[in-house]
Computed example of a mutant assay.
Amino acid sequence: MNEEELRKSVERQVKRMQRAQRERPTLLAQSIFLGTLSLLFILPIIIGAYLGSWLDEKAQGYSVHWTIGLIIVGIIVGMVNVYLYMRKHD
């Protein structure tokens, strides 16, 4: 490798490092991103728990079948939400 190629290689690396430094997300942006991920995961679980509880109250006798089932569905929906959001923002 001659001196000119070495100089160009170092310049490219310096430019890449400077661009990475400029484009680094701020603490606020990271906090918003993590908050969004949390909501995308937690909200379907909470909605499933409330809906399941309401359906169990309507059923005769003591039962938690709807609550447990819809919490599991909420977990699956939340995981799919997070996966799709991460793919979109990758």
Score class of each variant (00 low, 15 high):
S53L: 15
T36K: 10
M79R: 08
A29D: 08
T26D: 07
G48V: 02
I45C: 05
V82Q: 02
E23P: 01
T26S: 15
S38C: 05
D90Q: 12
Q21F: 05
R24T: 13
R7Q: 13
G48S: 06
I42V: 10
V77W: 00
N81D: 00
H89D: 02
E5V: 03
E23I: 02
W66F: 10
I32P: 01
A49M: 14
Q18H: 08
R87W: 12
I72C: 12
M79V: 10
G74I: 00
A49R: 04
L28P: 02
M86T: 12
R7W: 13
Q60G: 14
K58P: 00
R24D: 09
E57V: 12
I71N: 00
W54E: 15
Q60K: 15
I76L: 06
R16Y: 09
W54A: 13
T36F: 02
L84W: 06
L39R: 03
Q18Y: 06
E57R: 15
I71L: 02
S31N: 06
H89C: 08
R7L: 14
E23S: 10
Q60W: 14
Y85H: 08
W54P: 05
V82F: 00
S31F: 15
R16P: 05
R24L: 14
A20V: 13
D56N: 09
W54Q: 07
R22W: 07
S63H: 08
L84N: 13
R7V: 14
I68A: 08
I32G: 04
D90H: 15
V64R: 07
V77A: 04
G61R: 01
F33V: 05
S31I: 04
A20N: 09
P25T: 02
Y85V: 04
R87Q: 15
S63A: 02
R12E: 14
V73T: 11
R24G: 07
V10W: 13
P25K: 12
R87H: 07
V64M: 06
I46N: 02
V73S: 05
W54V: 15
I45P: 00
V10H: 13
S63N: 06
K15G: 05
I68Q: 07
R16S: 15
G74R: 01
I32H: 04
H89F: 12
E4N: 10
D56W: 09
G74K: 01
G69N: 04
L70R: 03
V80N: 01
L27V: 12
G78L: 06
D56L: 05
W66E: 03
L37F: 01
L55G: 06
G74Y: 01
E11Y: 07
W66P: 00
V82G: 01
A49Q: 03
Q60L: 12
H65Y: 15
V64F: 05
A29M: 09
V77N: 02
E11R: 08
G48L: 02
E11F: 12
I32K: 08
E23D: 09
I42Y: 04
N81S: 04
R19M: 10
N81H: 08
E57T: 09
S31W: 11
L40H: 00
V82H: 00
S53I: 07
L40Y: 03
I76T: 08
I76F: 03
